Amino acid sequence: MSEIFRQAGLEDAERLREVIHEAYALIRELKLHWPAANAGLAQIRDNIAQNECYVLEVNGTIVATITLSKTDQITKETGLPFVKWFAVHPSEQGKGYGDKLLTWMEQSVIRDKLGAPAVTLGTAEKHPWLLPMYKRRGYESIRTVDPGNGDGIMHLLRKVVNPALFAHSRQS
């Protein structure tokens, strides 16, 4: 089995639209106002062009994706990278691909490439399994907000990926 982690290109937009659309079905059912949940091909292409969109490809097929945002307010506020649009195609869920891609992102991109001490992401409290999943992975809630749009309580989560650098950054 061949597994490749790589940055997505515009030629991947069609498959990414399929992966994200299928993976975010529950987000639409919960009526969460997440841009990725209803993203069309143009938004997918914009995401690839404006951010760092990564994929896990298994035997030549993209099975999972995650985006390192380059344009969000959270990075400006926290000074930490923010990841979004994390999705695993439903036919590939339960095989560990999401765990592999998120771990690769945390270590290879956030810690090693960017040299950042931690990473952030956001999720909704009303989603039945995302918040507990991220907490099991070592993420902690550092801020909650109700955006007033029907999403309910949203959590900004942080995971330390370089403890020594994180401790040093807190002393400065």
Rank of each mutant, 00 (worst) to 15 (best):
E29P: 00
R17H: 13
V63R: 13
H127W: 03
L102T: 01
A39Q: 14
F5M: 04
T123R: 02
N149D: 15
T71S: 14
L157M: 15
V19L: 12
D46S: 14
S108T: 00
D72L: 11
F86N: 06
E52Y: 12
G98Y: 07
L68I: 04
Q7S: 02
G60Q: 12
D151S: 08
P35M: 13
D72S: 14
N162K: 04
A167H: 10
E3I: 07
R17F: 02
G122S: 09
L130M: 08
N51R: 12
L102P: 00
I44D: 09
S169I: 04
H155D: 02
R137C: 03
P117C: 00
I153K: 14
I20N: 07
L56K: 07
E22A: 15
L30W: 05
T65V: 12
H155T: 01
I44A: 08
A164R: 13
K31S: 13
V119K: 01
H155R: 01
L101C: 03
E140H: 04
L156I: 15
E22Y: 08
E18T: 07
A42M: 03
E77D: 13
L156P: 02
T120V: 04
T120M: 07
F86R: 02
N47L: 13
V88F: 10
F5G: 00
L68Y: 04
D146E: 11
H155E: 04
S108E: 12
S91I: 08
S69V: 05
H168C: 01
C53G: 01
V161T: 02
P81M: 11
Q7W: 00
A124G: 01
M1W: 07
D12H: 11
V109S: 00
D12S: 11
G98E: 08
G150V: 12
A49Q: 14
R170C: 13
T65Y: 02
A8D: 06
Q93A: 07
V83L: 10
K159L: 07
N38P: 01
T75D: 05
P163T: 08
S2T: 14
D12A: 10
A23T: 06
H33W: 07
T67M: 15
L131P: 03
A42Q: 14
I74K: 08
E52L: 10
Q50T: 09
G148Q: 09
N47P: 02
E14C: 04
A64P: 05
E57S: 12
K126G: 01
I110S: 03
R6V: 04
G60Y: 11
T61V: 15
I62C: 08
K70G: 08
I27Q: 09
